[in-house]
Amino acid sequence: MKELDGFLAAALQFAALEVTLHKRLADGLENVAESIAQTAKDEIGFYQPAVGPFQDWAPLAESTEEDKARKGFPLEAPLLRTGEFRDTWEHEISGFEAVVGSKDKRAPWFEFGTVNMPPRPVLGPAVIHNERTIRRILGRAAVTGITEGTAIHSVMGYDRQI
């Protein structure tokens, strides 16, 4: 416990806490966005089960598999031909906002499906798969930012490091 000597010391302490909290939360948000983007990349090429409100990925059409075989692409690997789509997943952070996604023009077609193709959602499931990680990272960032790294009893589920 830190003892404060007067109002000026208290004001300075609170200002320092605000800076620390913002830094910890920004770092935590970066880690969360990176984790979601990586999970999205990892889903490409593998049939995904249903999760949350998202249905499982339907098998590829026989004609699609035949076309992939003719062209030498991996079979039974949905959304994966060259790896280009997988490699477009990225994240950007601005203040306390994170954007995770793909700039590939086909991403919305894959995510939501088309008249001729069932949806194979990537982003929504990636967020759901990271729910515990998101809570842990941002919770820890908030607690350590507020407490300036002071030890919190382990029963609370937080440690001193972010």
Rank of each mutant, 00 (worst) to 15 (best):
V99I: 14
Y47Q: 10
E76A: 11
G149F: 01
I44T: 06
L21G: 06
T88I: 08
H129T: 05
H153A: 12
W57P: 04
K68L: 14
V32F: 00
L17F: 04
D104R: 09
R140W: 04
E92K: 15
V51H: 05
P78H: 06
I146H: 00
A141E: 03
I93A: 07
K2G: 07
K105F: 12
P119T: 06
D56F: 03
W89T: 02
T114R: 09
N130H: 08
I162T: 00
R132P: 01
H22A: 13
I128M: 12
N31D: 12
I134A: 00
I44K: 00
Q13H: 15
L123V: 13
H22S: 13
E131L: 14
Y158D: 00
E62D: 14
A11N: 08
L21H: 08
A10D: 07
A77M: 07
K41G: 04
F46H: 15
Q38A: 06
V19H: 10
D87R: 11
A26K: 12
T114L: 11
S154V: 06
N116D: 13
H91Y: 15
M117F: 11
P53H: 05
T144M: 01
K23D: 09
A107T: 06
N116Q: 11
E131A: 15
R132A: 13
N31C: 03
A16N: 12
K41H: 06
T114E: 10
V127W: 08
T88P: 05
K68I: 10
V122K: 03
F14C: 03
V51P: 01
F46A: 13
G28C: 04
R140S: 12
L25C: 14
T39S: 04
A69E: 15
A142L: 10
G145W: 00
A69M: 13
R81G: 02
A50W: 00
F85G: 01
D159E: 13
G145A: 02
Q48D: 11
E30A: 09
R132F: 08
A16T: 10
S63I: 08
P53T: 04
E92H: 14
K105T: 11
R70Y: 08
G139A: 02
A142M: 09
Q161I: 00
L12T: 10
G45P: 01
P118N: 11
